[in-house]
């Protein structure tokens, strides 16, 4: 319900700030970084790829239809390793610059939410270490 309210509020916000004459679109990459490790020996660590997938679903549930298009989802280095990296590439389209920035901010928040969900599922929190390396999965959003 909380997510639905966010989505409705978001749609209202985008609609309220959208002049019809200044459509803006752009591409974002959302990187996820985690510790990775052996699929069996390090089982229980967070997966950056699992976090990325969680984030895609959050984006799907939260952003207005037609405002985004996922153009890539990738990550991991082998079938028998926990993915240390995940990447979402997406194209955003908004009616104007202000609405576009809101979309970017939403994706940034939802990426962090996806990472947080993965961290929560595996019971790790910021500052935790695994064999000396950061134990959490983190997200970063950059335009390209």
């Amino acid at each position: 319900m909380k997510r639905l309210l966010f989505s409705v509020a978001f749609l209202a916000c985008v609609a309220a700030t959208t002049p019809a004459f200044a459509q803006q679109s752009g591409n974002l990459r959302v990187d996820f970084q985690g510790p990775g490790g052996h699929s069996s020996g390090a089982y229980g660590r967070v997966s950056a790829l699992h976090a990325a997938a969680r984030a895609v679903i959050l984006i799907q549930q939260s952003l207005p239809a037609g405002s985004y298009q996922i153009t890539n989802l990738t990550g991991g280095n082998s079938v028998n390793s926990i993915a240390s990296d995940g990447l979402i590439e997406l194209k955003l389209t908004a009616a104007n610059a202000a609405a576009y920035q809101k979309l970017v901010a939403a994706v940034t928040n939802l990426a962090a939410e996806g990472a947080a969900a993965e961290n929560k599922f595996r019971g790790v929190k910021p500052g935790d270490l695994t064999s000396g390396a950061p134990a959490t999965v983190r997200s970063a959003v950059t335009p390209f």
Binding site: S39, L49, A53, T71, G76, N77, S81, A83
Partner: peptide, 22 residues
């Protein structure tokens, strides 16, 4: 018995030139 899983790798085919559909 200790049982484990992971989605170890994922990838997408790039969209054809000039398109955005994967």
């Amino acid at each position: 018995p200790r049982t484990t899983y992971t989605v170890g790798r994922a990838s997408c085919e790039p969209p054809p030139a000039g398109r955005t559909i994967v």
